[in-house]
């Protein structure tokens, strides 16, 4: 069956958002913002899953999305807890100043 907006459009949008997320992870220095860019990447994958679910007539696409949202929620909790813990000890969370562990 053909849709008004073909699935490929959604997948292209997903790819563009994914690359924006990668750009953010590569360039930002604040770990919270880096984490937000990772969330953009996860959302891009979610968009892909739902679009593909519609394409295949499969509810699975949407169920995967919900599972991923749940996992992402857990990940955010742990990630922000780590950042808070680091901030308490160091009073700064600047990634470039996280230099205690050297190469």
């Amino acid at each position: 069956m053909s849709f008004a907006v073909p699935t490929e459009h959604y997948l292209l949008l997903s790819a563009v958002l994914f690359c924006i997320g990668v750009a953010g992870v590569a360039t930002k220095r604040n770990p919270i913002v880096v984490f937000m860019c990772i969330e953009i990447m996860l959302n891009a994958a979610n968009l892909g899953f739902v679009a593909l679910g519609r394409h295949f007539g499969d509810v699975g696409g949407q169920i995967y999305t919900m599972l991923i949202i749940a996992v992402a929620a857990g990940e955010v909790a742990i990630g922000l807890a780590i950042i808070v813990s680091l901030f308490r000890t160091r009073e700064t969370i600047d990634l470039d100043e996280a230099d205690l562990l050297k190469l």
Binding site: M1, T7, A15, C19, V22, A23, A26, R54, F56, G57
Partner: peptide, 24 residues
């Protein structure tokens, strides 16, 4: 790097070729 990745994704058609036929 991310521009390269974007060019790779969009250019090679990762987002469209290979899509399994839909059964909706």
């Amino acid at each position: 790097m991310s521009l390269g990745l974007a060019a790779l994704f969009v250019g090679t058609g990762v987002w469209k070729s290979g899509l399994h036929a839909g059964k909706a």
